[in-house]
């Protein structure tokens, strides 16, 4: 019902854009920025679209977990990248408290899991199966981990449960938490020099796939409830005994009051949907071409006019 009226409204607005956009509040739409490039550029892209429509836009840097609380309270207006694996829990928790709305999915699918750069496969040909990985654990051993393989997990606050999975699947690995994404790239970068085999936490879409080709390790397939019910998954006594979902959603979220305060912008937000290649391209402009995010966004908008102009009408 709600969707229908909005769609109707947008439909009507399309014929009288000036009048419709004037209805948006002149208060700035606050867009949160996090610490990975695709999100930053995408936020800038959306911000510049809103500015094109005559809205005021402001960016704030926030923590990617805490942001849902801020959206809920209206401190920030929307969130462009809700990754199922990483932020699903925080997003759902905020939804339960109220104040935040789901504005639909991007076309892109997300995946985050154990990952290795291609050269690793030379040393451990059985990959990407996780059993094969476990059998070659020793080639991932380092001085610090002794005979066990070393798996570099994401920072502790990403809550990736690598340690739990190693225990649940009884793997011969030791989980080391990186302090930041930088640590992960540093590890891959260092390994690249002498093609040392490594297995680290990684996700898609991001810039890394353009720089270092690689694959995700195939764990037992994700089943709903794997993180809640021990009975689910191969090990009946443990949680986290499956891989992460291989086609996780990438959602947009917004503050409840946005629809009322900036109806036109909200309508556009509902239509926005990026694909995996588009997101990787945004990340590439910053990560590889070294543009500033706002420049990257402007460049992307110039190059992809057909994509976003369609959302405006």
């Amino acid at each position: 019902m709600n969707k229908f009226t909005t769609a109707l409204a947008t439909g009507v607005l399309a014929f009288a854009p000036m009048a419709a956009f004037a209805a948006d509040s002149s208060d700035p739409i606050v867009i949160p920025i996090h610490n990975w490039s695709s999100q930053i550029v995408m936020s800038n892209v959306v911000g510049q679209i809103f500015e094109e429509m005559g809205n005021n836009v402001e960016y704030v840097t926030t923590d990617s977990q805490a942001v849902y609380e801020s959206v809920r309270l209206g401190d920030v207006t929307l969130e462009m990248e809700v990754w199922e694996g990483a932020f699903g829990a925080s997003f759902r928790a905020a939804m339960e408290k109220g104040g935040i709305v789901d504005v639909g999915d991007h076309n892109a699918v997300t995946r985050e899991d154990w990952w290795y750069p291609m050269w690793t496969k030379d040393a451990c040909p059985g990959l990407p199966s996780w059993e094969a990985l476990n059998d070659c654990a020793e080639i991932f051993a380092t001085a610090e981990t002794g005979s066990k393989g070393r798996y570099l997990d994401g920072p502790v606050d990403w809550l990736k449960h690598g340690k739990e999975r190693v225990e649940a699947l009884d793997m011969n690995f030791e989980v080391i938490n990186a302090g930041s994404a930088a640590a992960l790239w540093a590890e891959i970068g260092a390994a690249e020099a002498d093609k040392r085999p490594v297995v680290v936490f990684n996700w898609t879409p991001n810039f890394a796939e353009a720089v270092w080709p690689g694959e995700f390790v195939e764990f037992p397939e994700w089943v709903d409830g794997c993180d809640k019910d021990p009975a689910v998954g191969p090990n009946p006594n443990a949680l986290y005994d499956c891989g992460n979902p291989a086609d996780g959603y990438l959602k947009k979220a917004a503050w409840e009051g946005m629809e009322e305060k900036w109806p036109a912008a909200y309508a556009v937000l509902e239509k926005i949907s990026f694909t995996n290649p588009q997101i990787a391209e945004m990340a590439r402009l910053v990560d590889v071409d070294e543009l500033e995010p706002d420049e990257a966004a402007a460049e992307w908008l110039e190059a992809n006019q057909d994509v976003w102009k369609a959302w405006l009408n």
Binding site: T61, T62, S180, A181, A182, W185, E290
Partner: peptide, 24 residues
């Protein structure tokens, strides 16, 4: 204060280190 979302040099440094761009 880049850690709590202050834009500026700190945030940029954090972001650059976050994507392992040592030059920048």
């Amino acid at each position: 204060t880049a850690f709590i979302g202050m834009p500026g040099l700190g945030a940029k440094l954090l972001a650059m280190m976050g994507s392992f761009k040592l030059g920048r």
